[in-house]
Simulated scan of single mutants.
Amino acid sequence: MLPTLVRRSATARKPLIHFIGKRQWPAHTDAPHPHPYAPAEIKQAFGEFTSKSASSAAPSQSAPSSSKSGSGVQAYEEFWYAPERLWRHTIDEVEIDAILSGGATAAKS
């Protein structure tokens, strides 16, 4: 056996990174605040922004995003938010080809 391999295997591997202390996560999160170097108008309007974002995030995030149009028809942002009876269960070969091509279309002659 080569001497370098013997010497390398004779010592235990010592990692180069050493973590100091035990991992400790803070018990509470910091209050939202603007960046210290943010423009003055953003710093002034930051409280209004956080109150608007908190009020818009208050409803359940998993709730369907639907809106009522003037005709009384309910529109869903994604098909899986709609009831399953409204889902289309069959996919044509043309649709499968379009999905597999990534949306690129090829001219057929």
Rank of each mutant, 00 (worst) to 15 (best):
L16I: 11
E77D: 09
E93D: 11
E93T: 02
I99P: 14
G47H: 04
Q24N: 07
S56C: 07
T90V: 07
L86E: 14
H33P: 01
G21V: 00
K22I: 04
D30Y: 07
A27L: 15
P64N: 10
A45S: 05
L100Y: 10
A54W: 00
S65R: 14
W25E: 12
A107I: 12
P3W: 09
S60W: 03
F19P: 05
P3Y: 07
M1E: 10
M1Y: 11
R23S: 09
G102M: 01
V6M: 06
S55A: 12
A58F: 08
L5I: 05
E48A: 03
H33L: 08
F79Y: 14
L5C: 10
E78Y: 08
P15I: 08
S53N: 05
Q61E: 05
H18K: 03
R7S: 01
W87Q: 07
I20L: 02
Q24C: 06
G103P: 01
I96V: 04
R85I: 00
S65V: 09
R13G: 11
W80S: 14
F79D: 11
G47K: 08
F79E: 12
P26C: 02
K43H: 08
S101R: 00
P39E: 12
W80G: 12
A98N: 05
Q74N: 09
T11M: 01
K43A: 01
P59V: 14
G72P: 00
S60V: 00
A38W: 09
E41W: 15
R13K: 03
R7G: 04
G102T: 00
A10L: 00
P34A: 11
S109Y: 10
S69F: 09
I42Y: 11
A40W: 04
W87T: 09
R88K: 13
I42G: 02
P39K: 09
R23E: 10
T105D: 13
I42A: 08
Q61T: 06
V94D: 12
T4F: 07
P3H: 02
S56D: 05
A58R: 09
